[in-house]
Amino acid sequence: MNVTRGFTGRPRVHNPGLPPGQYDAREDWPVLSAEVTPDLSPADWSFRVDGLVEHPHTWDWDAAHALPASAYEGDIHCVTGWSKFGVRFGGVSLDAFLSVARPHGSATHALAYSHTGYTTNLPLADLTGGRAWIVWEYDGAPLPPEHGGPARLVVPHLYFWKSAKWIAGITLLDHDEPGFWERNGYHARGNPWEEQRYSGD
């Protein structure tokens, strides 16, 4: 251990919800997108599931809203160090989209892509079983554009760069294909509990 002279740090709070190396951002919700926030209206938004699926399909705003509503209430964790507790997102479980598209047995991974061209890769297992959502509400109100509105992917058990803003679709693959930050040195999976921040962690 490399102790820093004179450093005491914040008062210790026992918080079993805080992954290693993270701090509680409390009311803050920093915006860290690397690109210009797009001017994207709900009428321009669509979400597609394709690749290794039986029925490639595109949903527009109304069709996506016709699927069964589902909410995530819990915590989110950003690779830059902040975590935010007790957030509420409203939308549709990704399972509802996948049950229409029907992934082939050979599908193992997905590349999620945004209307800006941003991409991020995830194991398919991280997107199924009630662990991923397409959301358009935050705290009961429309998701703000800078936070990914009109709709974003939310995969809260992974670092939040995996939760692509302005989500446009996912392509199912039989292999892992690095996305935007993953090609820039970030970890392929990004599990905050194992502190998988960068390639090699």
Binding site: E35, S114, H115, T116, G117, Y118, F180, R183
Partner: peptide, 8 residues
């Protein structure tokens, strides 16, 4: 292009 993320 109306919006896009720059290349690597």
């Amino acid at each position: 292009t109306r919006f896009a993320v720059p290349g690597r």
